[in-house]
Design a protein around this nucleic acid. Structure first.
Lengths: 155, 155
DNA sequence: CGGTTATCGTACGGATCCGAACGATCCGGT
DNA sequence: ACCGGATCGTTCGGATCCGTACGATAACCG
């Protein structure tokens, strides 16, 4: 490393922390995809969108995109995929005809009732290899990181 | 939530922890992309691949893919993009003609020498809103999570 | 030395993924 | 009433992203 950057004062601790953040997120994501989602032919993003709409029925697309942490443009494509599989339905708002509201079809609801407990079981299995104290601290620090980024987006 | 899953014993703490894990990773990633990478017209994955090859010159593609946390198939496409921009070069191995080794061009090296300090400065700015103790614990827990997933992939 | 068997990187198909530009719709002020 | 500005979801172009299948090469083994 030193060979490449010379005497620049680099923050290795920060680089290491964030490197592990991405590694952990990727590892968990592929574990959940491979062990749970794959057998239902469901992609990660498709599942997240389905979950969000499951919880907040009739949600507007821009809020769904924000909750699923994807752009509006991406959501349009994902919803199209889910709609083609008959899992989600699109319906316009009467009062504001610009809006599109999302709802799960009965098939979508039924699928989520089957997948989510299984999904959460694997989540639990992963997380509970940590002590309860660690989990609490960990979650809190993750929120701190989010706030560190989004809390001061100027400058 | 209870309305949807009935009496199923769900692990909300685990779901919440992992939800924040993805939120944090996404937030940091887009922050770094928007504040640093975008002005160089560099994608996240392109930068990561460039960084990996910068550090380990002459790396074989499968190792580069593993270090960048992407599949071999994805790496092929990303390298093609970087190659078209004259930042990276592919060269065959003499002893084993199946292998392809990756190297940064002088332009690639020069670009990384400019970008990485800037990249790391933003990393530092984000992470250092946490106390030094928290950073250390945080990093350790992230490694625990990775091990929790990859340490027992059977069953 | 011939023939499996393993491993390499890549082509392919299909699904994200996003920024920017766009048409449609709503709203504020005159 | 109306019209310029804001906001909605979508389209478009281009870059990932991955599992699978494949051709090429190497390693193993009798």
């Amino acid at each position: 490393m030193r060979d490449h950057v010379g005497d620049l004062p680099l923050d290795f601790a920060a680089a290491n922390a964030l490197s592990n953040l991405f590694r952990a997120a990727n590892a968990v994501r592929s574990e959940l995809t491979n062990r749970v989602l794959r057998q239902y032919e469901m992609t990660w993003t498709g599942f997240v969108v389905l979950w969000v709409v499951w919880i907040w029925d009739g949600m507007e697309t821009r809020h769904a995109a924000e909750s699923a942490d994807i752009s509006k443009a991406t959501l349009t494509g994902v919803v199209k995929t889910l709609e083609a599989r008959g899992l989600i339905a699109r319906e316009g708002d009467e009062n504001d005809r610009r809006l599109v509201r999302l709802r799960l079809t009965p098939e979508g609801v039924s699928l989520m009732e089957q997948i989510y407990p299984e999904f959460n079981a694997v989540e639990s299995e992963i997380v509970n290899q940590l002590s309860e104290r660690k989990i609490s601290t960990f979650t809190k620090t993750l929120r701190d990181v989010v706030n560190a980024v989004e809390g001061q987006d100027d400058e």
